[in-house]
Design a protein around this nucleic acid. Structure first.
Length: 473
RNA sequence: GGUCCCAUCGUCUAGCCAGGUCUAGGACGUAGCCCUCUCAAGGCUAAAACACGGGUUCGAAUCCCGUUGGGACCGCCA
């Protein structure tokens, strides 16, 4: 295929291995690649690294794709799958073998493992001792193909984030590029694919920095141009260990299920390790135009779930009510607050959501808060009832029922007038009547403004609930 | 153990490359106050950091060295 010469169009890729769901760390790597591609009007390629057949599954491939789509990280080419490209890797591996740049290794995995253990025990580096490198001729035994690393000199990775990083060649081992079963290994596939796909910039996690000199030598041996590298820091859990399952939710899709907005996740991930002055909230367009590798920090970042929650609440506040309604709908249905075939008037739904959106940090919370608008009757919290429903408040409610019944237009303004009348007549505080009513209508002591709530709940349900609470009392 | 990376409030970070304007800025979270029918939202205020030790310099968060701490990698895993 093409060479990368000429510095033409930017081509980057995200290359997850489908051995799990797309997690927060992977998503950020994908995002940085996507942003970089968009910023430079380049191409973003999705490649599935599934050469580990025992751990890769179709389910994870689908899940990763679903997560990418949900986040809005669309790709221009792919998804390519390494398992579809085995012949290509094999051909390159044998080419290296023929050219004497690689050699047959007859050591068995068991032998290697044993030697590794011994080396560790004796405090030696657990590295392959190159014992098969000098074997001449071909033995009639199963073999893996190993790459001949240079024995001397050093290799510099000119990293776009870390700066120049120097490795001694003597520290780099002769890695296996083709296993004895004929399948290629990661470090080899990456090089072949990145070349074949004309990748110009490899943006990936810092955990790959130590692999980079190995890959550079493979590029050289194959006569390929080396792309530019950018190794971005890791995302850690609160205990500073690499983010993993035990830190709670790490799968991107679990955030979808918890009611997070993809834009909030994207914004949050972008600010983890990258910044633009004091700016915290970015639209996608801003992210695309402002993103650059120079502003990517060098230090690892700890995943701060609280800040994500805050950002999500900001995005909920920014989202128009109608749109929010279609977003909460699945949650409402799931919680049985709404039937799938229910016919809800959009203007009413918008009003309901407007009253709640700045009180909720996730769609799930929003759905839950909407229950007293949607359900026919509400469950009353016994503690709230005990505190606010008593003979005195029941009397006030009685009076309220009478006045509200006469109301032609059941609107916030009219309702407020009635409350104020009662407060003035009875010489009570607004809270003396507002709280009992709130308990009757919402079942709880917390809600948006009470007049607003009554209007949204509507005259019929309001009166029914008010009666019910004093009757039950 | 070896190699590599990193180090500013509890957390994300600005500042560092081009040393003085930093009594170190913003944001999340926390605390207090205001607003108030509850809860939020909003407004105001507060506590909170240059890991440590040496240099270089008139002057260092910023440059250099070391120490310590954290992370990553050392597979016929990716």
């Amino acid at each position: 295929m093409t060479s990368n010469k000429g510095g033409s169009v930017v081509r980057v890729r995200f290359a997850p291995s489908p051995t799990g769901h797309l997690h927060i760390g992977g998503a950020r790597t994908a995002l940085f690649n996507w942003l970089f591609a968009k910023h430079h009007r380049g191409k973003f390629i999705l490649r599935i690294e599934d050469t580990d057949r025992s751990r890769s599954t179709e389910e994870f491939i689908e899940s990763i794709i679903e997560a990418m789509k949900w986040l809005g990280l669309d790709w221009d080419e792919g998804p390519f799958r390494q398992t579809d490209r085995m012949d290509i890797y094999r051909a390159y591996a044998h080419k290296l073998l023929e050219e004497g740049k690689a050699y047959r290794c007859y050591c068995t995995p068991e032998e290697l493992e044993q030697r590794r253990q011994e080396a560790m025990k004796e405090g030696r580096p657990p590295r392959y001792d190159r014992r098969c490198r000098e074997i001449s001729g071909i033995l009639n035994k199963p073999f893996a193909i190993r790459f001949k690393m240079p024995l001397h000199g050093e290799t510099v990775v000119d990293d776009l984030v870390k700066g120049p990083v120097t490795f001694k060649n003597s520290e780099i081992e002769d890695l296996v590029i083709l296993r004895s079963d004929g399948t290629p290994t990661y470090n080899f596939c990456v090089v072949v694919d990145d070349f074949e796909m004309a990748i110009t910039h490899v943006i990936r996690g810092e955990d790959h920095l130590n692999n980079t000199p190995k890959q550079i030598h493979i590029y050289h041996a194959l006569g390929m141009d080396v792309p530019k590298f950018a190794h971005i820091p890791m995302i850690l859990g609160t205990d500073k260990a690499r983010l993993s399952k035990r830190h709670g939710a790490t799968a991107v899709l679990s955030y979808r299920d918890e009611g997070y907005l993809p834009d909030a996740i994207v914004n949050f991930l972008a600010r983890l390790g990258w910044s633009y002055g004091d700016k915290e909230i970015f639209t996608r367009e801003e992210l695309i135009s402002l993103f650059n590798l120079e502003q990517v920090g060098k230090a690892n970042a700890i995943f701060n779930a609280e800040k994500l929650l805050w950002l999500n609440s900001e995005y909920i506040k920014m989202t128009p009510e109608e749109e929010l309604f279609s977003l909460v709908k699945p949650f409402l249905i799931k919680e049985n607050y709404l039937r799938e075939d229910a016919n809800i008037e959009l203007s009413w739904a918008a009003k309901a959501i407007r009253s709640l959106k700045e009180r909720c940090r996730t769609l799930k919370e929003l759905a839950h808060a909407m229950r007293y608008y949607l359900l026919d009757s509400v469950e009353i919290d016994p503690k709230a009832k005990e505190k606010y429903i008593n003979p005195k408040s029941a009397g006030l409610i009685e009076e309220l029922i009478e006045k509200l019944s006469c109301l032609e237009e059941f609107t916030q303004d009219r309702i407020e007038k009635i409350f104020i009348d009662i407060v003035n007549e009875k010489k009570i505080k607004l809270g003396d009547i507002a709280q009992p009513v709130r308990v009757a209508i919402t079942g709880n002591t917390v809600s948006p403004g009470i007049y607003e709530v009554l209007e949204i709940v509507g005259k019929e349900k309001t009166l029914k609930r008010l009666r019910r609470i004093i009757d039950a009392h």
